Simulated scan of single mutants.
Amino acid sequence: MFKRILVPTDGSDITAHAVDAAIQLAKVHGAQLLTLSVMEPFPYSAVSEIQPVPPQEFIDAQQRVATQRVEAVSAAAAAQGLACRMHTAEALHAWEAIVDHAKTEQVDLIVMASHGRKGLAALLLGSEAQKVLTHIDLPVLIVK
């Protein structure tokens, strides 16, 4: 049923549950597994020319962390005998990068974690999972 499954990762413990679910689904369906970690862009400011961290240092650190996150997913998949294609992307909003990547890679299913925030916390903090759900017409499995 599913041929290409995308599991975005932010490296959190809750995302590990989504990664496990995605790996199992990919094995059951004989699907290709893809993972994505989204990096924040450098916070350029027109107000001040003095930046606390030089741009290249910030970018390198973001890339290093994103790479570690997708490598962790790939290692978890490899431990289960499954290959995993790793990707990183830079975006102001993670949900936009996830939606764009899912469309570009023509995935059949997105498996992602949700922190399960409710009420005011969900309103103030937002939900990347909720935004993905409302901006894509693919199946999305939310793992809590």
Rank of each mutant, 00 (worst) to 15 (best):
Q63G: 15
V7R: 00
R69F: 02
L36R: 04
Q130G: 15
Q130Y: 06
H135Q: 11
E71D: 08
V7F: 01
Y44T: 12
P139R: 07
A22M: 00
A78L: 06
V7N: 02
D20P: 10
Y44M: 14
I98L: 07
D108P: 00
A66R: 02
L141C: 13
L36Q: 06
I136T: 09
P41T: 08
L82R: 03
E105A: 11
P55N: 14
S114Y: 07
H101N: 00
H93N: 14
H115W: 10
A122F: 10
I59H: 13
P139W: 05
D13I: 13
F2W: 13
E105M: 10
A26Q: 01
R4Y: 02
G11R: 03
A21P: 09
A61I: 08
A78M: 04
L123H: 13
L82M: 06
S74W: 02
F58T: 10
M86E: 01
A18V: 06
L141W: 09
K144L: 09
A79E: 08
S114H: 09
I110F: 01
K131I: 01
K131W: 01
S114D: 12
S48P: 10
T15C: 15
A89R: 13
A26V: 02
M112T: 03
V65E: 13
P43N: 04
M1R: 05
T9F: 00
L120A: 13
A121C: 06
G11K: 03
S74R: 07
G81F: 03
H101Y: 01
A72G: 11
I50W: 10
S48Q: 11
G126R: 07
A31F: 00
A91L: 11
G119Q: 08
A75R: 03
A113C: 11
K144P: 11
R85Q: 10
L92I: 14
T134Q: 10
V111C: 06
G11D: 05
G11E: 03
A91I: 09
V47K: 13
Q63I: 12
A61V: 10
V70N: 01
H115V: 11
A26F: 02
I142Y: 03
Q32K: 04
L120V: 14
E49A: 14
D13P: 14
V132F: 00
V143D: 07
Q56K: 15
P139L: 09
K131E: 08
P52I: 05
L120G: 13
I5T: 05
L34S: 04
Q56I: 07
D20N: 13
P52L: 05
V47Q: 14
A91W: 10
R85Y: 03
P43S: 05
Q32C: 02
M39S: 12
H115R: 14
A46R: 13
A79R: 08
I136H: 08
G119S: 09
Q62F: 08
R85V: 05
F2H: 11
D60Y: 08
